[in-house]
Deep mutational scan, measured.
Amino acid sequence: GATAVSEWTEYKTADGKTLYYNNRTLESTWEKPQELK
């Protein structure tokens, strides 16, 4: 079967924080998503 690919993209901001963006739900979060833990 196909492996579930994470929908989350990780961005590094200018101040060194990490922003997570979900390509499916168009949601963005500063918290690390469950799927990435």
Rank of each mutant, 00 (worst) to 15 (best):
G1N: 13
G1W: 12
G1F: 15
G1R: 09
A2T: 13
A2V: 12
A2M: 14
A2Y: 12
A2H: 12
T3R: 07
T3L: 11
T3M: 12
T3W: 10
T3P: 12
T3Q: 12
A4V: 14
A4H: 14
A4M: 14
A4E: 13
V5I: 15
V5Q: 13
V5F: 14
S6H: 10
S6N: 11
S6F: 08
S6L: 09
S6Y: 08
S6R: 08
S6G: 11
S6I: 08
S6V: 08
E7K: 03
E7H: 07
W8R: 00
W8G: 00
W8T: 00
W8V: 01
W8S: 00
T9Q: 09
T9L: 09
T9W: 06
T9P: 00
T9F: 09
T9V: 14
T9S: 10
E10T: 10
E10Q: 09
E10V: 13
E10N: 02
Y11C: 15
Y11K: 07
Y11I: 15
Y11S: 04
Y11H: 07
K12H: 10
K12W: 07
K12I: 13
K12P: 04
K12E: 07
K12M: 10
K12L: 11
K12S: 06
T13I: 05
T13A: 07
T13M: 15
A14I: 11
A14P: 13
A14F: 06
A14H: 10
A14K: 11
D15M: 05
D15I: 03
D15L: 05
D15T: 08
D15W: 05
D15Y: 05
D15E: 08
G16S: 01
G16L: 01
G16N: 03
K17E: 06
K17L: 07
K17Q: 09
K17T: 08
T18I: 15
T18A: 03
T18V: 12
L19K: 09
L19E: 04
L19H: 05
L19A: 07
L19I: 14
Y20P: 00
Y20V: 00
Y20M: 00
Y20E: 00
Y20Q: 00
Y21K: 04
Y21P: 00
N22P: 01
N22H: 03
N22T: 01
N23S: 11
N23K: 11
N23V: 12
N23T: 14
R24G: 04
R24V: 15
T25H: 01
T25V: 02
T25L: 03
L26F: 15
L26R: 11
E27S: 04
E27T: 06
E27D: 04
E27N: 04
S28H: 12
S28E: 09
S28K: 11
S28F: 15
S28N: 04
S28T: 15
S28G: 04
T29R: 10
T29E: 02
T29P: 01
T29D: 02
W30E: 11
W30G: 05
W30M: 10
W30N: 08
E31V: 11
E31N: 07
E31F: 06
E31T: 09
E31P: 02
E31H: 07
E31K: 05
E31I: 13
E31R: 05
K32A: 06
K32Y: 04
K32L: 09
K32T: 09
P33D: 01
P33Y: 02
P33H: 02
P33K: 02
P33M: 02
Q34Y: 11
Q34E: 15
Q34I: 13
Q34H: 11
E35T: 07
L36D: 06
L36F: 11
L36E: 06
L36T: 06
L36N: 06
L36V: 06
L36H: 07
L36S: 06
L36Q: 06
L36C: 08
K37M: 15
K37L: 15
K37Q: 14
